[in-house]
């Protein structure tokens, strides 16, 4: 992208109008760190939405509602009962980047290495999009079905992300494997377990990193449903790591190692989720 002009609209509706008029020549600016990876020379006008009051984290009913321009650093620092988002946010890039990178910017255009989509898929989060006249909510499965950037071509703006509040019978765990701490993920896995006693009632397991696009792993989930939440179950489920996806070489890794790492990481994420359900909350 080649930034040719800059607009800071005073309201959400004005931003929507600006973006609608600009069409493909407009680009939402919500942190801007992704610009580094958009190195074509298409001239664009940046529409800065950082001053529209979209930086917040609120408890709303059964959800935590996170404003789209909330920085990853703010999410990392936030604490609430059974809050789990900080765990992944502190592993994304560096402090300097997390101070300016936002949750909205992170998931409006999804790069293969992105971590948050993995988390949001496992969490069954809901994305709220302003369409100019009202707001629409999209569940994560639908939102991340394909590249979300396509949803914003007509001026629509992501305004917030709603994270379900985890209950006592929920276990959540996420693991990001990196070569060096500030590196992109080799593999990221997130798992949400809904437990009935020691039995897994439902499971949502998502993956990212060494696959083309973040996605859920239904075969892993199927291996968990109705089973006891124990080591044996987790191992059997993790063994399904490549049932739904083909793991690629990434970050210098061979496909063989990616696949192995995925299996190990699925197991670790499930262990962490089980520990979360037992009361551990980092």
């Amino acid at each position: 992208m080649k930034l040719c002009a800059f607009i800071r609209p005073a309201s959400l509706s004005a931003a929507h109008e600006n973006l609608r008029e600009l069409g493909r020549e407009g680009m939402i600016l919500a942190g801007g760190t992704a610009l580094h990876f958009m190195q074509d020379h298409t001239p664009v006008t940046a529409v800065d939405i950082m001053s529209l009051g979209l930086s917040f984290i609120r408890e709303e009913g059964d959800y935590y509602n996170i404003g789209a321009t909330t920085s990853l650093a703010d999410i990392q620092r936030y604490r609430a009962p059974r809050w789990a988002m900080h765990e992944i946010c502190r592993r994304i890039s560096t402090h300097q980047i997390r101070n300016i990178s936002t949750i909205g910017g992170n998931i409006c255009r999804v790069f293969p290495w992105a971590d948050l989509p993995v988390i949001l898929l496992a969490m069954d989060a809901r994305m709220v999009i302003y369409t100019g006249s009202d707001e629409e909510e999209f569940p994560a499965d639908e939102y991340f079905k394909e590249q979300p950037a396509k949803r914003f071509l007509d001026g629509n703006i992501l305004t917030s992300v709603k994270i379900p509040q985890l209950k006592a019978h929920h276990g959540f765990g996420s693991i990001k494997v990196v070569r060096a701490e500030a590196a992109f993920a080799q593999v990221t896995i997130a798992a949400l377990l809904e437990l009935d006693g020691s039995t897994i009632k439902t499971a949502r397991v998502a993956a990212g990193g060494a696959i083309p696009f973040p996605r859920r792993l239904p075969s892993v989930e199927a291996a968990l449903g109705g089973q006891q939440a124990n080591e044996e179950t987790f191992k059997e489920a993790a063994a399904q790591a490549d049932a739904d996806v083909t793991w690629r070489g990434r970050e210098g890794m061979t496909p063989e190692y990616s696949r192995h790492l995925a299996e190990v990481t699925i197991y670790d994420a499930l262990e962490r989720a089980a520990a979360f359900a037992r009361g551990r909350n980092e």
């Binding site: 580094h36 560096t94 070569r179 060096a180 701490e181 500030a182 590196a183 992109f184 970050e251 210098g252």
Partner: peptide, 27 residues
């Protein structure tokens, strides 16, 4: 951590800190 990579035609594949990793304090 550091792992320089070349394509078979002699082109350097990771000439940046995104793809060629040096440690930070956390490492």
């Amino acid at each position: 951590y550091e792992d320089i990579r070349y394509a078979p035609n002699g082109r350097l594949l990771n000439p940046n800190f995104t793809d060629y990793k040096i440690p930070t304090a956390l490492d």
